[in-house]
Amino acid sequence: MNGAHDMGGMDGFGPVEREADAPIFHDEWERRAFALTVAMGFYGLWNIDISRYARENRDPLGYLRDSYYERWLYGLESLLEQNGLVSREEIAARMAELAEGVG
């Protein structure tokens, strides 16, 4: 599949930027998104190629705008929805409930 992810040889992205003492994860939500994705992968409902397709088969602007683990999250949500496990409506509803309880 072609798409925004197929960026080998593309010009204009600028120099490689490295952080000094970069941590493995930059925020708690990255840890959780990583672990949820790996844990759900253990069920064998999808393989690594299907999960990549779920991350990359989307509008190019969204792909390029998202950070790395945001792409994972998008992919996981798509796979959960396709497999009838969790819908995006359920996620939105739970977000609203959690937001009520915060603060």
């Binding site: 939500w29 840890r31 959780r32 998104a33 672990a35 759900m40 999250l73 996981l76 949500e77 739970r94």
Partner: peptide, 26 residues
């Protein structure tokens, strides 16, 4: 962050993931 929290809470509620297993993976 809220979205991830919501997703984890739904997956735990449905019995699909165990928070302790997530901690171990991390």
């Amino acid at each position: 962050a809220l979205r991830v929290k919501a997703l984890e809470s739904l997956l735990v509620e449905k019995g699909l993931v165990d928070p302790a297993a997530l901690d171990a993976l991390i």
